[in-house]
């Protein structure tokens, strides 16, 4: 709600605050690197099929396991497919699968955390115990067992990732809400008779969002980790999809003779994961109070 017509004035401090934060960021080179990497990968994911010199499924058995050259800058794999094209197109797979999984986890985790903390009492107790049980099984193991039963597919991987990370998101949101709930601005809202939904979504949620953003970036990094690992184990996206984990898994057979088969997809995973990690650290610094110094 804008109470005076001077909405311009309102924006000024926001901009100056943002620029102050950006200035502070310059002292943290890793954050800038992180954001650049993530933006680069996003661009690649969107534009990949257009940049890629070959179709990622194009086989050319005559050109098997060719080292990097002018025509194939990342070389070719055991079927003579262009690795550069496959890595480019594969970025879309990773980002879409990990991104959708993360979004699911964030959305449901947020709802669980919000309501559990706000309701409190027995409801909260039971919900959180269920979350604890899910957390007490290593995520990769649980993902493997579930995918083993559901059958490996892109959609199933997304659902599994989304499901597995709900408890962690819910925990974070819950602890933030529990703290916010006792703040006096929430009590002031109760005193003027605001509805629970208003308090939850207008008073509390806006203050949870920064935490949620940081949490999302961290979950995203974990999701990439999980999705790639599942792909590697053959439980994720299935061939001939250019999934990076899958490519690395296949490369195991060939990399003794042709290291580039391993390096480029593995390097892509490493770069993306590190980039997301740095970005997540940076978000924490920018968005959370005291975040400049923390983990």
């Amino acid at each position: 709600m804008v109470l005076t017509n001077s909405s311009k004035k309102q924006n000024e401090p926001k901009i100056s605050r943002l620029s102050a934060k950006l200035k502070r960021l310059r002292r943290y080179p890793t954050t800038l690197i992180g954001f650049s990497i993530v933006i680069l990968f996003l661009l690649v994911a969107v534009l990949g099929p257009w940049i890629a010199p070959y179709k990622y499924t194009d086989q050319n058995l005559a050109m098997r396991l060719q080292p990097p050259s002018e025509s194939h800058i990342f070389g070719t794999d055991q079927f003579g497919r262009d690795i550069f094209s496959r890595v480019l197109v594969g970025s879309r797979d990773v980002l879409v699968v990990a991104g959708s999984g993360t979004s699911l986890a964030i959305f449901f985790g947020m709802l669980v955390g919000l309501f559990s903390a706000y309701r409190g009492g027995l409801f909260d107790e039971i919900v959180m115990r269920i979350m604890d049980v899910i957390l007490s099984i290593p995520p990769l193991l649980l993902a493997m067992v579930i995918l083993f039963s559901l059958g490996p597919s892109r959609l199933n991987v997304i659902i599994v990732v989304g499901f597995l990370y709900i408890p962690m998101v819910a925990r974070v949101v819950r602890s933030v809400v529990l703290e916010l709930k006792t703040r006096q601005f929430v009590e002031a809202a109760r005193l003027r008779g605001e509805s629970s939904l208003y308090i939850l979504f207008n008073e509390i949620l806006p203050n949870v969002l920064p935490h949620l953003a940081v949490e999302a970036s961290m979950r995203f990094s974990y999701s990439i980790f999980l999705v790639a690992s599942l792909g590697f184990l053959g439980l994720g996206v299935q061939p001939p999809s250019p999934d990076w984990g899958l490519m690395v898994g296949d490369a195991r057979t060939w990399f003794h003779q042709a290291r580039w088969v391993l390096f480029f997809p593995a390097g892509a995973i490493a770069l993306l994961v590190v980039g997301v990690g740095f970005m997540s650290d940076g978000l924490r610094r920018m968005l959370l109070p005291g975040g400049v110094s923390d983990v």
């Binding site: 980790f225 790639a228 690992s229 898994g249 391993l262 390096f263 740095f278």
Partner: peptide
């Protein structure tokens, strides 16, 4: 900065990536 950067990278690196890269360098 160095330690934080490296540890951040290590935390996120899936074991199959680091494992295979180690094999490629140190073993092969």
């Amino acid at each position: 900065h160095l330690i934080s950067g490296i540890s951040m990278a290590f935390v996120g690196l899936p074991e199959f990536v680091s494992g295979l890269l180690l094999i490629a360098f140190l073993a092969i």
